[in-house]
């Protein structure tokens, strides 16, 4: 009986979790944070195989069509940026994300890449730029893509 009850509770509350909204949606409400959200519908309106989708010989559209949404959060305010980044890091800690890469650039920007899922099936990719002096950015890609898709895409952009 108790097992049944526990199972029921589990089902109900995980169902509740899955119905939860994007954990980063709360940041769109933050004062001083500029947010850009691009839905799957909007992504599908992008011209397929257009000339300008080709970066460094790589068709970026291929990657875009594997995404279900893009969320971009930016702020130029130092304090707001700090708060946004620390809140995002909390979200990452509690959200079972995996650190993909950590980059510390020459201009003292800390950039962390996190992912959810397996390398051959990434469901969520997050980039958090902790700009100590300038812009802080959170970039979130939702969808189903591979680490290779990302590598190809970034190669294309860096060649361009």
């Amino acid at each position: 009986m108790r097992k049944l009850l526990i199972a029921l509770l589990f089902v109900v509350f995980t169902a509740n979790l899955s119905a939860q909204k994007n954990p980063f949606e709360q940041f769109t409400e933050m004062d001083g944070v500029t947010s850009v959200y691009i839905s799957k519908n909007m992504l599908s309106l992008f011209p397929k195989n257009a000339k300008n989708m080709n970066y460094g010989g790589i068709d970026v559209g291929n990657f875009l069509h594997k995404l279900s949404s893009i969320l971009i959060l930016t702020t130029e305010d130092k304090n707001i940026g700090k708060r946004m980044v620390s809140l995002a890091n909390n979200q990452i800690k509690s959200g079972n994300y995996e650190l993909l890469m950590r980059v510390k650039s020459d201009d003292d920007d800390n950039v962390n890449f996190f992912m959810k899922g397996k390398p051959e099936s990434i469901r969520e990719l997050i980039m958090i730029v902790d700009g100590s002096d300038d812009e802080s950015v959170i970039l979130q890609f939702l969808g189903d893509f591979t680490l290779q898709d990302i590598q190809k895409m970034t190669e294309g952009f860096s060649k361009d």
């Binding site: 850009v36 970026v60 893009i70 971009i72 890469m101 950590r102 980059v103 650039s105 950039v111 890449f113 980039m127 730029v129 950015v137 970039l139 990302i150 895409m153 970034t154 190669e155 294309g156 952009f157 860096s158």
Partner: peptide
């Protein structure tokens, strides 16, 4: 956004 992402990703 992709350009920004790529720049940072490539840095790494």
């Amino acid at each position: 956004a992709l350009q920004l992402f790529s720049d940072n990703f490539e840095k790494g």
